[in-house]
Design a protein around this nucleic acid. Structure first.
Lengths: 341, 341
DNA sequence: AGTATAATTGGAAGCGCTCTCAATACTCGT
DNA sequence: ACGAGTATTGAGAGCGCTTCCAATTATACT
């Protein structure tokens, strides 16, 4: 039954190849009765048009790529990624695009993948999960190759590139302001890597909130984390020497590690040290955690990224666009706000 | 610079289209000097052959699909998946295949995705992550459509399908025997879902180990889990009423939940209740967990799955093949074996 | 009824590559 | 130096679809 062609359907129905093609592509100018006969034949034979032939003739593959460079190791520790992928996959399903998945592991891979990605006619566009300094190279190469591209997370050098990002500065600002409003004054922070825009931006929000109250930024209260639970744990151990009364962690998973360190030091959350995380992944709401955190709409983020990219592809307009998504502070137990009631 | 064709390269070098094609595909019969000139021209112009045209002419797309049906929700809670995907992605890179990613969310998606997957010429083959009863339908449809397929995890009905699986029965048997050898007699188990082969097989291993020592299987010591941390937690709470002195959890993440429940009940691990998990994901080795567990080579599992599929594709032989991979018991703190020293 | 106009259809030329086949160029043995 | 055998090359016919263009048919309007 396989390997039917358009022609077979045409012959079966008694029309030309062109007409069947029109039906397939939803062209308006086909007589209703003919359209139905064609559709019936397709249905009955289980015909599926050949994707390669279609792509070749129409110069559109209806496939987009997702590149995960540099973040590979995080892909396995940070639940952020599966959620992002979910949003992206959903959008692809709804918009009838296929998603090609590229995990860039090392330098060697970059070459292979780049050549695969830039094979003409294979991808209509590319999503690059990034925000890390080390990804500039590949983003630049993609720009040079004129492959429609949306960076998921603001890239370090964002000129000439379309991207979608969270309002990280403002989100962090809100989180830290919340702690300040609750009376905390020695607020520490476990940042993301300095090499990532996320790390830089969330730290900037922290600094801004302190600055607005004329509080100094104490270097002893700032530690660079790596978005892992272990990283959060060790960072917090280091911070405890400076006797903070609160900590803002740039991710939930680091906040979980931080809480572990605080408990091990014999201190209580939130009484001794208030904690605010970032992400609002399911783990944040777990019964014994109840993390106050910043909710990022990660799934919609992925979804919007695809929409942005497909818009870009449809329009053919190469001028870069930017989308910034809102976040929201979710108040739970670890910041101490609820205990006051 | 883009949209070069084979012909352009041929013209530039002064040879025919065919010769350039031969160079591109590594055919032997090309004069060395010519090959080098062609290669130089390709390098210099940055030419990339059109993937669609290639696929159309050669009837091979060098793309395989990965279908994740039914397990969607687990994809976000169980770190098993990212690791599996890593192995698959790595193999694809090395074997020069592209990976198309399909997350089957609901019934509606199944239709869309199935029609996308079965578009002729788009995929050379498909990997279906499964082992769940609910996936039979899609596996069957794929068989009917004669699309080369490897099921990752043994499917419920495994006739006519190639699959790759772990030695789950034996692994569980080993884990439980280990607990028995340590003198535990009231060994409970938190199984995987009854609807999954993994759930069924690991439970079978548990039963086998007890049987071998003529111990009865006490229904009060068997609870069906769902591979989530919460599920492990609640399952363990239920089990504690039956006063077990050990528990074998069918996944690490459930074991972590179980440990939390044990601690909350004021009991110690391993003194009061020994715990063995399954997976050996990084979390198992975390300082305050030190989980004794069964190591599954998840990354290689994914890798081998791809190898199996591509072999299948190359050979064109549709007769089903099966690969079973070995697991290994990793003894750490939670089973109590180390405390004896 | 007759013409202008619009809707519908078929024909045919590609899209950029692979691959068979026949033609040409080269090798070696005698 | 010549023919058999082998290595190298080019021509050309597709792969299965889209899409422009021209031809045909249906519809509207006078």
């Amino acid at each position: 039954m396989p390997d039917l062609t358009l022609e077979d359907i045409a012959a079966k129905v008694g029309v030309s190849r062109s007409t069947v093609s029109r039906v397939l592509n939803g062209h308006p100018n086909v007589r209703k009765e003919v359209r139905e006969r064609v559709l019936a034949a397709i249905e009955q034979t289980g015909f599926h048009p050949n994707a390669a032939a279609r792509a070749l003739a129409s110069q559109r593959s209806w496939t987009i790529g997702l590149l995960l460079p540099h973040s590979v190791s995080l892909f396995f520790t940070d639940p952020y990624y599966p959620h992002l992928v979910k949003g992206i996959a959903q959008a692809c399903n709804h918009l009838d695009y296929t998603l090609a998945f590229f995990l860039v592991d090392d330098k060697d891979d970059e070459e292979r993948i780049f050549s695969r990605v830039s094979r003409n006619g294979f991808l209509d566009g590319v999503l690059v999960q990034s925000g890390h300094h080390g990804d500039q190279r590949i983003i630049g190469r993609l720009v040079d190759a004129r492959i429609p591209q949306v960076v998921v997370g603001r890239p370090m050098r964002s000129d000439n590139v379309s991207y979608i990002d969270m309002d990280n500065v403002h989100a962090a600002y809100t989180a830290v302001s919340h702690l300040l409003r609750l009376g905390r004054r020695r607020i520490a922070t476990i940042t993301g890597p300095e090499q990532s825009t996320v790390g830089v931006d969330r730290k900037a929000g922290y600094v801004k909130a302190l600055g607005e109250r004329d509080l100094p930024v104490d270097p002893a209260l700032v530690v660079e984390g790596d978005f892992t639970e272990m990283g959060g744990y060790y960072s917090m151990q280091a911070l405890l020497a400076a006797r903070p009364d609160a900590v803002f962690a740039a991710s939930d998973i680091m906040a979980v590690g931080a809480i572990r360190a605080i408990h091990e030091a014999g201190l209580r959350v939130p009484e001794d040290v208030a904690v605010v995380g970032f992400d609002d992944l399911p783990l944040a709401a777990m019964t014994d955690i109840q993390l106050t955190t910043v909710r990022q709409p990660v799934v919609s983020f992925g979804y919007r990224a695809v929409e942005l990219l497909t818009d870009l592809i449809q329009s053919g307009d190469p001028s870069p666009r930017h989308v910034i998504m809102d976040t929201k502070l979710i108040v739970r137990g670890t910041c101490g706000a609820l205990a006051r009631k």
